[in-house]
Design a binder for these strands. Structure first.
Length: 296
DNA sequence: ATACACGCCTGCTGGC
DNA sequence: TGCCAGCAGGCGTGTA
């Protein structure tokens, strides 16, 4: 499922194709993939048609492409992949993918005509054109803007301006399970179920341990492991279990081979050999080693 | 402020 | 072989 590493892989792949390109044509095949767009498809098409695109940006799992304006950009094409969304770069006359919902043709000054498919089997993802607003966590920097729909999203742990000390303090004030806190995108963004389980395994913490009971070293260790697992996954091109996550060229990532806990119920913990267990938590699966990861 | 259920969606899997 | 329940889960919304 696309979490930070997967979305970042998409951003990196998209950048050379969209930066400086002009929107030549937009076709909305399924209006349900515009759920985040607060107006009919014709409005979405009208706002994009002829627009010049800038380099894509990302915060957490949100990806956006600012539309060039006379001065600073005020609008962006916002993309959220949801559970199964893909952004695929294809040649100009490429046929639709099986789950293409929106098709955007671009003219790039160097690469010529390109076709971008937004494909989404389960339609939890969405595109929209969203106004850019000042980032509340960038005081004094009017240049840092966010799509309005992502304004509540906290910085992610690999953002250069992520405030680790503030995060650790906020985490240790949360009177909730530490895994719930990791998944709260308004506290820290980009972490989903897979990398939460992996970071908790690496830090030897039980996801249901109250966040406000974490020692300072334990919280710091958890953040370090979150960063490490996100970085490793990014270096491997993300986690692909099946065709639900692919990069812009339709290729799978390799990090699924490196998972230590997620989806490994019944298999030995790579650290101690005890079988990994799968438990229900927050209406989803949680995977942990019952020996290494206990509530303290 | 915080916590929880729910709806959104399709395709795959396992049991009968 | 066919059918259907169960499962995968990010995020916004509604309710308590």
């Amino acid at each position: 499922m696309p979490e930070l590493p997967e979305v970042e892989v998409v951003r990196l792949g998209l950048a050379p194709a969209v930066d400086g390109a002009t929107v030549a044509d937009v076709v909305v095949l399924d209006e349900r993939s515009l759920r985040r767009h607060g107006a009919p498809a014709a409005d979405f098409v009208g706002q994009l048609a002829g627009a010049r695109l800038l380099a894509p940006r990302r915060r957490g799992k949100f990806l956006w492409v600012p539309l060039d304006g006379d001065e600073a950009p005020t609008e962006a094409l916002l993309v959220h992949l949801g559970m199964s969304g893909q952004v695929l770069l294809r040649s100009a006359d490429a046929p639709d993918e099986r789950h293409t919902r929106i098709r955007i043709d671009l003219d790039h000054p160097e690469h010529g005509r390109l076709r971008v498919h937004f494909a989404d089997q389960r339609r939890f993802g969405s595109m929209s054109v969203d106004p850019l607003v000042a980032a509340r966590d960038a005081p004094g920097d009017a240049a840092e803007t966010l799509p309005a729909q992502a304004a509540h999203i906290a910085r992610d742990p690999i953002d250069p301006r992520f405030d680790a000390a503030a995060f650790l303090a906020a985490l240790r004030r949360r009177r909730t399970a530490v895994k719930r806190a990791l998944l709260d995108q308004s506290l820290v963004s980009g972490i989903g179920n897979i990398y939460a389980d992996e970071a908790l395994w690496a830090a030897r913490l039980h996801g249901e341990q109250p966040a406000d009971s974490l020692s300072c070293p334990a919280a710091a260790r958890l953040l370090a492991e979150v960063r490490a697992v996100l970085a490793r996954a990014l270096a491997e091109g993300g986690t692909s279990f099946d065709a639900q996550y692919l990069n812009v060229n339709g290729q799978a990532g390799y990090f699924a081979h490196r998972l230590n806990a997620y989806g490994r119920q019944g298999l030995p913990c790579p650290r101690c050999g005890t079988p990994i267990v799968r438990e229900e938590f927050m209406n989803r699966g949680s995977h942990r080693c019952p020996r290494c990861q206990r509530v303290r």
